[in-house]
Design a protein around this nucleic acid. Sequence first.
DNA 1: TCTTGATTTATTGTATACAATAGAGATACT
DNA 2: AGTATCTCTATTGTATACAATAAATCAAGA
Lengths: 243, 243
Amino acid sequence: MQFASTVNNAEKTSRKVHDDQIYDQMFAAILQQRLTPGTKLSEDTLGEIFGVSRTVIRKILQRLAYEKVVQILPNRGAFVAEPSAEEAREVLYARRVVEAAIMRLAVKSHSKEDLKTLERNLEAEAKTIEAGQHSDWVALSGNFHLLLAEIASNRTLADYLRELVSRTSLIHIQYQSNKIANQSCSCDEHADIIEAIRERDEDKAVALMERHIEEIEKSLNLDGRGAASDLYEIFGASGGVQG
Amino acid sequence: MQFASTVNNAEKTSRKVHDDQIYDQMFAAILQQRLTPGTKLSEDTLGEIFGVSRTVIRKILQRLAYEKVVQILPNRGAFVAEPSAEEAREVLYARRVVEAAIMRLAVKSHSKEDLKTLERNLEAEAKTIEAGQHSDWVALSGNFHLLLAEIASNRTLADYLRELVSRTSLIHIQYQSNKIANQSCSCDEHADIIEAIRERDEDKAVALMERHIEEIEKSLNLDGRGAASDLYEIFGASGGVQG
DNA sequence: TCTTGATTTATTGTATACAATAGAGATACT
DNA sequence: AGTATCTCTATTGTATACAATAAATCAAGA
């Protein structure tokens, strides 16, 4: 599966590409939940796995840290990020803002070809839902938003959105509530958005998108204590365990 | 002069701080136009200047590159960025979007103390204009916007704005037109914005901010050929020089 | 004289060696 | 037994050595 704009800049020198391949693998591993929040990312280990020295691993970790997907603690090393509930709310607010702007641009400037691309993505989403391939669906769902950013053709906003989408994936992992029911709704919401774009109804498309992101936020469990304190819920609110 | 949030994360290990000091110096040098767009940033030279190895310089250059203040060309090295006219328009559009959102938050959540901070900054701006200290004014003017981001207390948006403001400084250097007259107006525009915030008139404050950023864009010379082709203007549109 | 090509040189890219730090574990003491 | 301190070890942070690349210089030919 190939998604939009995984690699950004990179004039294609054979060496640079190698770096980006490792980056892509780590990035994908985190978003597909094969690396879960809090996991230690040892430089030596990663170096051995990918057959490169710590030098190049460190560079990649710093990039991931800048994108807030990884957290680097001085003298302690790198860990898969564990976004707080507050950070989650910030990210979703930022997404509402950025995606509304992208939507206005996309509605104005989209071509028929763009609509087809969106529809192809939508079909793929539907298939993964039917097949119950959850992590594939998460990726495709994020990709829908990134496609819109590409259509809007504002590189700056697109870069921000890419960052926000990947952070949202991490947030989903940490704060997914049991009522995942309305995640399948999201597919319909995407369909409605495509329709509004086709009609070139800017305000409607923006409203739908804002509502869509609100739904995402609602589907999260941001109110209780954070994931770190979940032990209280897990073991019930009662007193001692050994007593 | 100390500006808002130059250093972001940095748990204060003595070593980490050292890195950030070098980063701050380079960042400031670029924004104060002591390093102009296109300047080569040699790793060896910078290492000698700051008394560290290339390792740490490379890390800093990569961070600056991620912030789009520096451009890294594979096997060629790092250069102070030379934003294109298209990039300039993108950045200013992104600013309009991000700052409108920040403004809504700031209007809602500001304290009296915040208003005083903004007014102190405004006074400092006025002084630098009187004294004709142009580069100081540019810095303070940018700082006004960063203060608003702090008041809004959405770290994600604040980080984006910080990046956008520094890129705007570079854009100003490359595309400043001769009609710098309305730059002094900006000070008044800031004053109006503070007033709207005090009145807690959200829509008015947002409208003023959007207009303010449009003014900034208007004051730039984005329509003609880019800075690279400026030689044509400089030597006139005529034919040969030697003939 | 201008262009084309090979050679040299300067600079970046990567690996590795060494230094500094933090955490784990052991030991001594209360 | 529990706590505090010390030592040791594993890992990160930094410097440096070496490899690879690109551009600058120089030479040769048209």
